[in-house]
């Protein structure tokens, strides 16, 4: 028996919004410690890692480890049926063929149950073995809305954005046929609110170029968290991380573009 309950179904809606442009289907690995998804996009250029800890749920029970293949589009359709204030419960039996989504209104007067067929995902199991923490040359924390805005604005100029980070701050630039754009963000000396701060932790400066197409998928996670963390080192994938309240995080890994 697997059962996971979240008082705020809105969190799950936002999680789906954050992955639906990159993944068509994904395996949700459920265990005693929580729910995990690790999947690459179709082009194998980016990787999504979603982690929802069991202690972050309002109720969580997982008697046996389960791997449930789900269509992200179908899941999105079902979550659209949840009211903004509804509670959501995910439920499945051991060796399930279906998963149930149960939505309950705050006054408990409405109870809706949706059943979704699971997909047989016989595709490769990623088996990511990376457990050691990489030490990054630069780690930037900045407001997620600002990051979304910069990615959107600079995408108008070209297909990629260059991130140049030094101890003063981070510079984003793009260029294309009709001109070029640069946005510099200085490290905030004393931001009034933590969520408005720009913080740079630097070992050595980095300069990396990334595809706008993927960045614009990652920023869909913006509504999950006021701050985004960008971890960068030369010649390794960017890690773009959004915390999901007290329950977990979503991390996107994107390989930089290299001039051959």
């Amino acid at each position: 028996m697997f059962e996971a309950r979240l008082v705020q179904s809105a969190i799950l809606k936002k999680v789906l919004d954050a992955i639906k442009d990159l993944l068509t289907e994904a395996t949700f690995e459920c265990s005693d410690s929580g729910i995990q998804v690790q999947a690459m996009d179709n082009a194998h250029v980016s990787l999504v890692s979603l982690n929802l800890r069991s202690d972050g749920f309002d109720k969580y029970r997982c008697d046996r480890n389960l791997s449930m293949g789900m269509s992200i589009a179908s899941m999105t359709k079902i979550l659209r049926c949840a009211g903004a204030e509804d509670t959501v419960t995910l439920r499945a039996v051991d060796n399930p063929e279906n998963i149930m989504f149960i939505f309950e209104s705050p006054n408990k007067e409405k109870l809706a149950e949706y059943e979704m067929k699971l997909i047989n995902m016989d595709q490769e199991h990623l088996g990511i073995i990376k457990t050691k923490e990489t030490s990054y040359s630069c780690v930037v924390k900045m407001p997620s809305q600002e990051f979304s805005r910069i990615c959107r604005d600079l995408s108008q100029f070209g297909e990629s954005i260059t991130f140049a980070c030094s101890k003063e701050g981070i510079k984003f630039s793009a260029s294309g046929d009709f001109g070029q754009a640069t946005v510099k963000l200085a490290q905030t000396a004393d931001a009034d609110k933590e969520e408005e701060a720009v913080l740079v932790t630097m070992q050595e400066p980095v300069k990396l170029t990334f595809s706008c197409r993927y960045l614009n998928c990652f920023v869909k996670a913006g509504p999950l968290c006021a701050q985004v963390q960008l971890s960068m080192s030369n010649d390794v994938p960017l890690v773009c991380e959004y915390k999901i309240g007290d329950i977990g995080h979503i991390r996107y890994y994107l390989a930089p573009k290299i001039d051959d």
Binding site: H44, L126, K130, S211, D235
Partner: peptide, 14 residues
Amino acid sequence: RTSQKILERYFWPD
């Protein structure tokens, strides 16, 4: 593609 190789080398080092 090079980007793909970087990602694969990062996650699945030999």
